[in-house]
Each structure stands twice: as C-alpha cells, then as structure tokens.
C-alpha cells in the first residue's frame, strides 16, 4: 500500500422508510374545514387562547382545547423571509414564506406568500415586515391539505 494514497472511499446508502402518521380528531377537523375553505382554530376556554395550528390542548394552561373559532381571512405578518437558494426536496427559489396571525386567532401560522415580485430581494423583503396586512387566498378545489391556501399582500 502506498503511503501517499488518499483514503477517500465511500459505501453508498439510501434510506426510505414509509410512515403513516395518525391525524387524530383535532387535525382531522381542521383539514375537513379547509375543504370548505374555513380555517378553524382550536380554542382553550381556560386561557382564552385560539391556536393555529390547532392544538388538542393549551400549552399555557395545560387543559384541553375543547372549542373552535373560525379564523378571519385577513391577518398580519409576524415574521417572513424570501428563500433564494435551492434546497433538495424543497420548491425552486425564489419564494416567500410568512408566519401570519389571522384575525380572531392568538398565534401565527406559516404559509407561502404569493403574488409578490421577488426579483429585487431586499426591496421585496421590505414589503413583508412584521405588521404588514395580508389576506388568505384559497385554491378553487381544496383537498384538505395545509397547502390549500396561501397568503397575499392585502393592499
């Protein structure tokens, strides 16, 4: 064996494991709501907090969320970014995502922000500052997936 030989050998491997994640009744109710173009937030009477994504329980009071409220289709951005790099198994860039707190809801829910010119990134980012108003836009035929809707700037 030559002392100078670089050690750079690999054994290739891949790992594909199938998963079946149980949806449960809370998420099930939420996804059913999406099919009717309704965004349903779980509500905890013990703390007065309305959660999106819906929770079975309230993290603050640690009591069940046994109510529902319908979120408005308008809200404000709490945080946003524009993704400009390509990641494997993720959408082709550029695209924007934002956490938005919808009307009637206490927490923010992430989704894509569409309909924005992203060619100038800092300029586009300045339109997505916290506090900016956005609206919800549903697909014509929702399927009960979180991607049934997205956000767009309200004005």
């Amino acid at each position: 064996m030559s002392a100078a030989a670089a050690i750079d050998d690999v054994i290739h491997g891949e790992w594909h494991v199938r998963y079946n994640y149980s949806v449960g009744k809370v998420a099930g109710h939420f996804f059913e709501g999406l099919k009717q173009k309704k965004i349903l937030a779980s509500f905890a009477p013990s703390s007065g907090i309305a959660y999106l994504p819906p929770r079975a329980y309230c993290e603050r009071s640690f009591e069940p969320c046994d109510g529902w409220v319908e979120a408005g289709h308008q809200g404000i951005i709490e945080a946003a970014t524009i993704v400009t790099a390509a990641f494997e198994n993720l959408p082709p860039p550029p695209y924007a995502i934002a956490y938005v707190r919808l009307d009637n809801v206490s927490t923010a829910l992430v989704n894509f922000v569409r309909g924005l010119d992203l060619s100038d990134v800092p300029a586009a980012a300045s339109k997505l500052k916290p506090g900016t108003k956005v609206k919800v836009v549903f697909k014509d035929t929702p399927e009960g997936r979180i991607t049934d809707f997205h956000y767009e700037l309200a004005e």
């Binding site: 998420a27 994504p53 970014t81 790099a85 992430v110 989704n111 979180i146």
Partner: peptide
C-alpha cells in the same frame, strides 16, 4: 410537523 409546517420549506435556515 408533517401536517402543518413541513410543506413550507422550513429548515434551520428559513
């Protein structure tokens, strides 16, 4: 989370 947040290109960078 597979149901609510997985789809939005969240990773540690975003």
């Amino acid at each position: 989370d597979r149901f609510y947040e997985h789809d939005f290109a969240l990773n540690t960078v975003t």
